[in-house]
Amino acid sequence: MSLALVLNSGSSSIKFQLVDPENHATDEPFVSGLVEQIGEDLGRIVLKFDGEKHVFDSPIPDHSVGLRLAFELMEERGCGPTQVDIIAVGHRVVHGGILFSSPELITDEIVDMIRDLIPLAPLHNPANIDGIEVARKILPNVPHVAVFDTGFFHSLPPAAALYAINNKVAAEHGIRRYGFHGTSHEYVSRRLVELLDRPAEEINQITFHLGNGASMSAIRGGKAVDTSMGMTPLAGLVMGTRSGDIDPGIVFHLARTANMSIDEIDNLLNKQSGVKGLAGVNDFRALREMIHEGDQDAWSAYNVYIHQLRRYLGSYMFALGNVDALVFTAGVGENATFVRADALAGLEMYGIKVDPERNELPNDGPRLISTDDSAVKVFVIPTNEELAIARYAVAFA
């Protein structure tokens, strides 16, 4: 069996999977794992293989040590890189800027170009580069492929991509809408085309990637024409810990009246805001329990969250002109039936009719949740970014 290794390197973690790219989207990966708490006093590696979960605690000073330890654990269980047929390695890279619109075979030059984009993603691209450099040393004889989170949105029309600020300043500092979660939006939009069994060119759809991070995209004929995240993943929808869209003047107000530093404001908007900032929790199961118990902050947080979903839905319906389908995906989108129901409530006049019984079905693969007579079809399609990255990678093998 030929496998692809998929790596997603974060600032203090590495997620990894060994994936058979020929498998169906619902199949479990051959191996999956997580290296976490890199750089802390005690790190942890979690490995899932052959129906069993293995946990290993050890100091993990850097990504190189973490990945090598993970590979050693895999070797001990007969599923290591020297024991299976790895034909390609796919690396998730968060920011491709305007340079990268599609997956790229990684060379020293490509690594340098990704490094040049660090100012646009100072928390993510350095970690992505660490993962690339470590994996290339450990597996030097297979192609390594970078798959960019921003790539799907490279073709956004200028009206959606440009901010109304000084052209010279924007050009000098790379300021524009890039969009994120692109691999997920592209994956589920292509799965929808398969489910509808129609040419992609004929389909207009709106995709909801709702997890702790959340974004929406308007897709016409297979190409994104708008998306909610912007130059950074902070823009757009209300998220688990991120504020989403706010008045930019709030930043200046906090700096002037609260004497907050740029770093403090950055932390506030990215890690202490969103649903967590309003209700104190960012897990939607806990949020729903709090609402049932009568917690007014939780109720307010939920209403703000739903209001922003509906605001973007309305604007994207106008942008597309006509909509064939809506697609919900990611942790909240796939599992929180109440979010889907409330986001689409009362929209029958726009051709959107959710079937309550279908909406309550368990998360078990792609499924239609709208009524048979709904003009706009509504689907839940589980995302599988790792499988998408694996398929991109093996194309270079």
Rank of each mutant, 00 (worst) to 15 (best):
L3W: 00
L5Q: 04
S9V: 10
S11M: 10
S12G: 08
I14S: 10
F16G: 11
D27T: 08
V31C: 10
L34P: 02
V35D: 09
Q37A: 15
G39N: 02
E40V: 06
D50W: 00
D50S: 15
V55S: 13
L73D: 09
M74N: 02
Q83S: 11
L99I: 15
L99A: 14
P103G: 11
E109P: 01
D116Y: 04
D116V: 01
L117Q: 09
P119A: 12
P126A: 11
I129V: 14
D130Y: 03
G131W: 07
N141A: 11
V147Q: 07
V147N: 06
F148V: 14
F148W: 11
D149T: 07
T150A: 10
F152C: 12
F153N: 14
H154A: 15
H154T: 13
V169G: 02
V169D: 14
R176V: 08
G182H: 06
G182D: 10
R190V: 02
R191E: 15
V193P: 00
P199W: 05
Q205T: 13
G213R: 06
A224L: 06
V225Y: 01
T227R: 05
S228M: 09
L234D: 13
L237D: 10
M239D: 11
M239K: 04
G240V: 09
S243W: 03
G244V: 10
F252Q: 15
N259P: 00
S261Q: 11
E264S: 12
I265W: 08
D266F: 09
L269A: 05
L269C: 07
V275H: 02
L278N: 01
G280K: 04
V281M: 01
L287F: 03
L287D: 03
E289F: 00
D295Q: 02
I306H: 05
L309T: 04
R310Q: 13
Y312V: 02
G314L: 11
S315Q: 13
F318Q: 15
F328K: 04
F328Y: 09
A330F: 06
G333R: 07
A345Y: 08
A345H: 12
G351E: 06
D355F: 04
P362G: 06
D364E: 14
L368Y: 01
V376E: 12
V378T: 13
P382Q: 03
N384T: 05
E386L: 01
E386Y: 00
A388G: 00
R391T: 06
